[in-house]
Design a protein around this nucleic acid. Structure first.
Length: 678
DNA sequence: GAGCACTGC
């Protein structure tokens, strides 16, 4: 619940009586199409009321008769909870009764629930227990244009389910013009179907386009391309400030560094630049900020001041700021990609899509007519911006997805009906990894019990294997903690401006000679014992309180899964252990990590850099790792990312070479020759 | 001595 109250602060302060929403005009036609066709595609901008109103229309029209539920999926937790609150409020009921929501760690539904909001990832998990999703009469997939892996998988599943449940109604909602693609997807016969029978062509669905509720927005382009979009963005901000009417400004940049620089530059110039620049109030917004810092952007600017928010893509869909009249769009976004050949993830700035550009512009017209300044030419908008960025499924490590599909009984994952099929290199790389982890057998079938259990655990496959190896290495309690801590994704340590040194020394207090995983274990153990799970302990030790409490929840959930597998967790705390015991415990933990992460092994070279077993890529210990500037021989690591011209590994632990051969003899048989040389 | 866009179970 504590988590929830923070998230809830993101609710935009708008509350219009539902009848005034433009969607009211479509009430009858929406119900008619949904009644008549199995699939309805709804195009509507944010604020059209589709998410809040359509479920209510359906409920009143009797789609919840005979105890069935209307399910609405969202790509994000915050959206699922806030929308549920809004709808419950409009219907005058308590959330959790007729209207409820369900997200990881929070199931606010009851037997009375008829309209249920949930994340798409969670609905896929429900399909593990109820493959036909038979509790639902209607499923609405909201924000489908974002094309997350789970949205794509869910759409594929729904298409399959529809064949066995023709009465199920599917609504796909999208903010962009990709509607045709969604409809074509549901209309096309899958390979299985065509080989079965040539049924007559039914008309599968219709597209309904809702009018938006945003105000008109003027789009302006640069006459000639900008040399440096950060400089150009700052100049545009001052131009707006001196020449345009009142209203706050939202500037889209790509990352933390650019944003901090821009905020500083505007702040300095506001001080030195004389009266006309003195009343600008620059603010940063990116995911790495603490929740308190993020809250600042919702405050009203001081009297006579104009607010300028410099933001990453987080303001494109996840966070809505009211009162924005001007948008400045640099035209770029940082995109993650995955190279299946090297297994290395990259994070690089790429041009945004036309869909993104229009979404960004739309942020200007929420309260009155606005303007959008694009820091590129109209020609390059037309010629060089793609219609949409490649969907996530075509640029990610697919091992987790494959594991999930297999657990759902979809054995032929290559021929699964994807909205956009993933490249075959990505598929084979993921299949190879799962095979080497023992999750798949030589016929690519999920193994029992290992593969099935790995699919059920809510962690990456390599960590799932580590967890399931821990019992026999007598370190399950510790690995549970490590799994929970590493799944926080680097947000464990925390510092305000200028406290970097203090944070580093805090971290050193928890440091374990063996590496980062044991250091995380020490920090967690101290938090729950000495720190009694209190916020104060976190502040004193530069730990992120929100992350630490999340680690407690994740650990508890993982423990419940293991207990369901009849794997008992011995939690007797190791407080009185002798130094010799501690050393041998640490060795068990390192052996166990090797059982899951053997494919992420590397050896330190005399120059202090690392090479993986193939020896190809030069890798550096990330400066945030304890192994930075320390000596090691063989190590395993959790993550490898390429940024700029350097490749970094993070979450590193020392291991012995011999353990690699024990953990994965087959994997190392092929490459051991080269391992000798490394 | 560098830097992490954003989500989810």
């Amino acid at each position: 619940m504590a988590e929830f109250s923070l998230d809830a602060s993101f609710i935009p302060a708008l509350h219009k009586p539902p009848a005034l929403l433009p969607i009211a005009k479509y009430h009858d036609s929406l119900l008619y199409v949904i009644e008549t066709y199995p699939v309805t595609i709804v195009i509507g901008q944010t604020g059209s009321g589709k998410t809040t109103q359509i479920p209510q229309y359906l409920e009143k029209a009797g789609w919840c008769a005979d105890g069935k539920i209307i399910g609405i999926t969202q790509p994000r937790r915050v959206a699922a909870t806030t929308v549920a609150l809004r709808v419950a409020d409009e219907l005058g009921c308590e959330v959790g009764k007729e209207v409820g929501y369900s997200i990881r760690f929070e199931d606010v539904t009851s037997s009375a629930t008829r309209i249920k909001f949930l994340t798409d990832g969670l609905l896929i998990r429900e399909a593990l227990v109820d493959p036909l999703l038979s509790r639902y009469s209607v499923i609405m997939v909201d924000e489908a244009h974002e094309r997350s892996i789970s949205t794509d998988v869910l759409l594929g599943l729904l298409k399959k389910i529809r064949r066995k449940r023709p009465e199920l109604r599917i609504i796909v909602s999208s903010a962009t013009l990709q509607a045709e693609d969604f409809l074509k997807f549901f209309a096309s016969k899958s390979e299985e179907q065509t080989s079965l029978a040539k049924g007559e062509d039914e008309e599968v669905g219709k597209i309904i386009s809702l009018e938006g509720r945003t105000y008109p927005i003027d789009i302006l382009y640069l006459e000639s391309p900008a040399e440096n979009y950060v400089d150009s963005a700052i100049a545009t901000v001052f131009q707006i400030h001196t020449q345009e009417a009142d209203g706050d400004i939202l500037v889209f940049l790509t990352g933390r560094e650019e944003i901090d620089n821009a905020v500083q530059a505007v702040a300095e110039r506001s001080v030195q630049g004389g009266e006309q620049f003195s009343n600008l109030q620059p603010l940063p917004l990116y995911a790495g900020l603490s929740s308190e810092e993020q809250m600042c952007i919702f405050d009203k600017p001081a009297e006579g001041k104009r607010k300028v928010v410099f933001s990453t893509n987080i303001a494109e869909a996840s966070v809505t700021i009211d009162g924005i009249v001007y948008v400045v769009d640099c035209g770029f976004v940082k995109l993650r990609a995955y190279n299946p050949r090297t297994g290395i993830e990259t994070l690089t700035a790429a041009p945004i899509s036309k869909a993104s550009a229009s979404q960004r512009a739309g942020r200007a017209g929420r309260t009155k007519p606005g303007k959008c300044f694009r820091l590129y030419t109209e020609q390059s908008y037309k010629d060089s911006l793609p219609e949409a960025n490649p969907p996530e499924i075509q640029r990610s490590n697919l091992a987790p997805m494959i594991l999930q599909l297999k657990a759902l009984g979809i054995d032929n994952v290559v021929r699964f009906d994807y909205l956009s099929p993933p490249p075959s290199e990505l598929m084979s790389k993921a299949l190879e990894l799962l095979y080497s982890l023992g999750a798949l057998d030589m016929y690519a079938k999920l193994t029992k019990p290992l593969g099935f259990r790995m699919a059920e655990l809510a962690v990456e496959p390599m960590m799932a294997k580590t967890l399931l190896s821990a019992k026999s290495l007598n370190c399950l309690s510790e690995i549970l903690t490590i799994a929970a801590m590493t799944s926080l994704g680097g947000s464990v340590w925390f510092h305000h401006d200028g406290e970097q040194k203090a944070m580093e020394s805090s971290r050193r207090r928890f440091a374990a000679e063996e590496g980062d995983h044991l250091t995380l274990l020490n920090a967690y153990t101290a938090f729950v014992t000495k720190g009694r799970k209190e916020a104060r302990f976190c502040h004193e030790n530069h730990l992120n309180y929100k992350s630490m409490t999340r680690a407690v929840s994740i650990r508890a959930q993982l423990k419940r899964y293991l207990e369901r597998f009849n794997i008992e967790v011995d939690e007797s705390l190791a407080a009185h252990r002798s130094e010799i015991d501690a050393k041998s415990k640490a060795e068990q933990i390192r052996r166990c990590l090797t059982a899951g992460y053997f494919a992420h092994a590397a050896r330190m070279q005399p120059d202090g850099t690392f090479r993986n077993v193939e020896g190809g890529t030069v890798m550096h210990a990330h400066p945030s790792s304890l192994m930075f500037n320390r000596k090691a021989d063989w190590v395993i690591f959790q993550e490898v990312t390429e940024t700029g011209d350097k490749t970094f590994i993070r979450d590193i632990t020392k291991i012995e070479k011999a353990w690699l051969l024990e953990a994965a003899p087959e994997f190392y048989k092929v490459s051991s020759g080269r391992a000798e040389q490394a």
